Structure formats: C-alpha cells, structure tokens
Simulated assay, not measured.
Amino acid sequence: MLNKKYGNKLGEIMVKNNVDAMMIGPSADLEFLMNYSPQPDERFQALFLLSDKRYFYISPEITYEEIRDRLDNDTDIYKWGDHEGFVNTVVIAINRYKLAGKNIGVNNGIAAINLIDIQEKINAKFINGHNILEMLRVIKDESEIEKLRKAAKLADEVMGEIIDYISPGITEGDIKKKIEELFMQKGADGLSFEPIIASGPNSSMPHYCEDSRVIQEKDIIILDLGCKYKSYCSDISRTVFVGGITDEEKKVYDIILRANKAGEETAKQGVKAEDVDKASRDIIKSEGYGQYFLNRTGHGIGISVHEAPYIKTGNKQVLERGMAFSIEPGIYMQNKFGMRIEDIVVIGADGPEVINHFTKEIIVIK
C-alpha cells in the first residue's frame, strides 16, 4: 500500500516547489513510499503521484499482479504489454489526469531513453525531482532511527569478526565473501553496497572495486562495509594494519582520527553541512595533507546508502534533528597508501549520536 503519511508530505513539498506530479520509477524512493520496489529492467514502470495527493501507476503486464496486490483496489493501474510498448499507455494516463502542459518531476529510477520517448509524445515540462524526493526522506522519525541503530550494530559486529578472519594469503575477494556470509548469519536483509576491501597499494583508491589481490605482510587495508536491516542501511569504514605499522602510518592515522572526531563533534542542530565538512577538512589541511582528502566528509543514509544531507564544501543545508549521515574523512596518496575512518551520526535533541561503536584505536593484525 502507498504510505499515505509520506504521500501527503510529498504532496505538500511538491506544492511548495511548483511541481504538479512526480514520476517515480523503481528505486529507494519507490520503496520508501510503497514498501516495495520491483527489480529494475528495461521495461518502463512508475508511480505517478500528484500534488493534490491522487496517484496512479504504469505497469508492464509481467508485474501487474504484484503491483495490484500492493495498491488500493480503487487505484488506477495502466498496464502495457511487450507487444505494444509503453509510451501510448503513458500518454493515455497523463491525458486522463490532465497533466499535459504541467510540471512533472522525474526521479532517478526513470531511464533517460524512456523519458526521451515520453517527451516526444507529451507536452509537459519534465524536471529533476531528485532533490524534492530527498527532502521527503531527510528527517528520520524514531522508528527509522532505531532501524539505523540496529543496522549499525550488525555492521559493528561484522567489522570485528572480519578483522579476526583476515590473515596474509587470503584475497580481498575472500574477505568480501566472508562479510556477506556474516551479515546473512546475523539476520541482515542483505548488503547495503558491495564491500570495499582495498589492500596495500589499492588503499589509495577511495572506491576501489576489484578484489583479486592477495593480502600480504605490512599491508594497510581499508574495510568499508554495511548491510540493510528492515530496508535501512548501515555503512562503516575502518583501516587496519597487517603485521606492523610505521611511524608515518601512525601519524596519518592520528590525523584522520582527529578529523573524524572533529566532524562528529561539530554535527549539531543548526550547524550547516559545509561547516561539518570544514571541521574535518581543516585538520587534514593544517597537517599538510589537504590535497589528499579527495572525498566529501559524508553523505546521508537511510533507505538508500547515499542520500541527503551531503556533508561537503558549499552545502549550506542546516542540520536538523533526525538527520543521519556519515563522517568519513580520509587521506589517499597515489602509489603509496590510503586510510579512512567512518561512522554514522544521527542529529539528536542533545547533540550528535554516533551509532557506530566499533573501536577506532589502531588495530595491527598479527
């Protein structure tokens, strides 16, 4: 069923932003509104939610039964078959709801090639609706925060167990597989993203995505992992050392740890997102490593692992109670090494609540 509370809230946000309808394809946005999102493929489908809070759905025949079961009986569902294509069905629905000539927001679940086909047949102004939909999700209620806490707790537990599992001779891929196995054993719904296991020289790449390298003595390893619990995500990063740590590595780790703590302490109601970024970034800059801090300091988290608010330079969004986001400063030196420390923070009435509790002390794997 459509969550009427969130649907009504979205309608109010749309009115304020002069948007007449929102076209929402399979995505975290759709999951948030319907507690369901079909597997995306090349077939067009979308929920259309109007600013007056009416809504209808366009569905391929192959998913019609599932959609019908998830919406009120009186909801209009327009279905189309593979033999006919979807565009004429969209035209019929839009004309019936008098949306021609209106402002229609589009979310990131709509493929660009499908939107181009629709635009050729419909006279309407299609606009980027991503920011509006993120406004809908940016403030979490207590039930959502509790799910984030549970997801974070699972991530903390897996982080501890995977560090115990690591030893020279296994591969980055072995570690990834073990992470997924541990999350499933603990009752997670699944992974919130593919784990990043960046060892040795690979650690200088913040979003390294390979996994074939064998773990060796004296490696630095960035471990970035998370799960979903009742649709809500976790995300934690720690950096560990195999067999020993040099004085330079200790120095860099200490700088990142201080930057992480400064960002977390700054994250309070009324503070701008860019000020949290600045608190972390200034420490790294002051130590002469500013050019190696490649990423934003953080990103929001909820049903999606990356959503508003974005903790970055230039974002003047004011932090409010119920916002949840990462603090993850890092230093990445090409052809040398990289390190990152990441926690999730929730803005509470009495200040920031760091919901990850796994140690940030230096860990050397013997």
Rank of each mutant, 00 (worst) to 15 (best):
K176E: 10
I365V: 15
R96S: 13
P38Q: 04
F358R: 08
I284G: 09
N260M: 08
S203C: 07
T75H: 05
G244E: 01
G300P: 06
M184A: 09
E361K: 14
R258S: 15
Q119P: 05
I132L: 15
R149I: 03
G314E: 02
Q317V: 13
V138E: 06
Q216D: 14
F48H: 01
R43G: 09
D350A: 09
N17D: 13
M339Y: 08
F241T: 04
K278W: 11
N114K: 14
I116K: 13
T297S: 14
F32A: 05
K5W: 02
I331G: 05
H357G: 11
I222M: 11
R149W: 00
V345Y: 06
E142T: 15
R149P: 01
M22G: 10
G160V: 03
E12K: 13
G11P: 01
H207W: 12
H83W: 12
A188G: 13
I139T: 01
V305T: 15
R296P: 13
I77Q: 09
N315A: 00
F126I: 11
K4Q: 11
A308M: 08
Y229S: 06
R296K: 12
I139Q: 04
M22V: 13
V15T: 13
V318W: 02
E144S: 12
T359Q: 07
M159A: 09
D141Q: 04
G101F: 06
P168V: 08
E161D: 13
E161A: 08
N8W: 06
D224H: 10
P40E: 11
T266D: 03
W80N: 08
T313F: 07
I122A: 00
Y253F: 15
G11W: 00
D224N: 08
L30W: 03
G270Q: 10
K312Q: 11
K150G: 04
C227D: 05
V91K: 11
G109V: 10
M135G: 00
D52V: 00
A46I: 06
